[in-house]
Design a protein around this nucleic acid. Sequence first.
DNA 1: CTGAAAGCGCTAACAT
DNA 2: ATGTTAGCGCTTTCAG
Lengths: 327, 327
Amino acid sequence: MQSIADQVGVSRTTVSFVLNGKEKEGRISSVVAARIKEVAHRENYRFNELARSLRTGHTRTIALVVADISDRFFATLAFHVQQHALHKGYLVVIASVGEDRAQFKPTVEMLIDRQVDGMIVVPIQHTEQEFVRLIETGFPIVLADRYFPDLKMNRVIIDNFGASFQIVSRLLEKGCRRIAMLLYDDQLMHMQERQKGYVKALEKYPDAAQPVIYKIGYANTQQETRETIRKLFSNRDTFDVDGLFFATGGLAMYGIETLIQLGIPIGPQMQIACFDRTDFAPNLKIPYVHQPIQEMGKAAVDMLLSRIEKGEPTNESCILTPHIINR
Amino acid sequence: MQSIADQVGVSRTTVSFVLNGKEKEGRISSVVAARIKEVAHRENYRFNELARSLRTGHTRTIALVVADISDRFFATLAFHVQQHALHKGYLVVIASVGEDRAQFKPTVEMLIDRQVDGMIVVPIQHTEQEFVRLIETGFPIVLADRYFPDLKMNRVIIDNFGASFQIVSRLLEKGCRRIAMLLYDDQLMHMQERQKGYVKALEKYPDAAQPVIYKIGYANTQQETRETIRKLFSNRDTFDVDGLFFATGGLAMYGIETLIQLGIPIGPQMQIACFDRTDFAPNLKIPYVHQPIQEMGKAAVDMLLSRIEKGEPTNESCILTPHIINR
DNA sequence: CTGAAAGCGCTAACAT
DNA sequence: ATGTTAGCGCTTTCAG
């Protein structure tokens, strides 16, 4: 910057004004402005955003923290968050921490130490205390997808209970009466709500069997899912399952894979519903809950940026309604 | 930092030394050091990494630039790069630019402006000139997965030609003689090599049909793939295809989906091979090229960090050998 | 219309 | 064994 100033014969101040498009404000003559721009361009000058941020107090960078970036749902969310943030002039730093509290905390701190302006996080289990600490700090955070019902903070979520209730209702309407559910072994509300929706839907039908729920761990999802399905179908004389509801796309994928491998026909006698589209078995028409991931990403970014830019510590939470896809 | 210094009754320098674990070097008395640490902890002090980086000249941050983070291959690569970099004390910023040159350049600049120490990039078409500029700068970059044969720069790639050659050879050994290939319409070497491997394999068998190659665009992959497959099978009287080779996991997914939907049985009469595992049709045993994504990520990080830390502008390129999975 | 000067939070050579 | 000081590259107030 000094070098440009020298070449044009002005001070760094003037260069700064011009390069920041504040020529009006600085009342720089257009001829000087033009020369500065030209030299800057020729020298291929680029701001040192670090120095700039240190001075201005903001980085125009937000972080996105998810459990696993190689999961389809999160990867898609990341994609949309990034697109929308870029459009708003922000860079997004994606961090993938596993469903692992030990990695979560240091990562979040690392990000804050680097002075990101705010973050969107899909929280993992047992991190609630972290958030009460962060909230006290006043650091801008918005939760996406998963949330803590007791914490007053910005969040963008979907109506998990409603979606679950509706999709299970579909199964019931189509005649299923002995529906089992597979979900993740997770205390977080989004899972709890999905479970409640399922239970509630069953209650509408007195002739439906009691809820049968299997909880799968995050660590060995594929294997556990397989074994669960296997057991379920080897016990068909005690519980003659005729419907299966998967709480996530990942579980559905592994589950359907197993069904196909076991040669269990999916059809009127054995129906399936799940969250998220599964491209797994294209010729199977499986009704599913379509989560509006793009809107979720956009809403989260918008909420966070308005929080950052306007400094409004609003409590608003945005609840999106997923579509039920009947196919 | 000043606040801690005041409370303990020392200068900022002393605090800095202690908090950076350089008490030996600064010859700080252990009692003072202890007090400083205690106060820092109590006050919940955290470094401003921005200021630190401005001073030290490095950020301990690297960038990973990929075309589409919602693609399974890239998401997995991102995951491993992140894990390994974190382990080495680096933060990784993931940027997803689409197969879009217009988004590529500004994103890369944005990242460099933020002073990342280096970057790993999976280049996209028509960006070669960008790289010659960047190389001149001396900025540490390593290419992963895709590359430019004419550019002397660090890269971590796989033997695409060999993998392609071998997997197509499998198809031939199993009796296929009229094998078509689907690949992306991309000038980059990795695609060209995959194509060459296919052609070369066919040449070994004089009784095999000439190469039949379909190029699919990145924009409407799913739709184009569908139509291609449809056409291919509606023309079976002129070319009675008995084998299909997909150059990527994504193409394979869409292609197999279409085959299933069309009710075309996959078996001895119609065999398939592809790059990357497809979880799509679990009961189909499809031989595929298993790319060592984790090693690729690790190797790229290691190469980049040694370049950054040792400043060695080596030309070394690392060529990984994928496994051929026969199932 | 333009420049001097202060300072963002930190590090490190050099004093003491 | 600890403190002084001079920046890192930039923005912005205030004084010409």
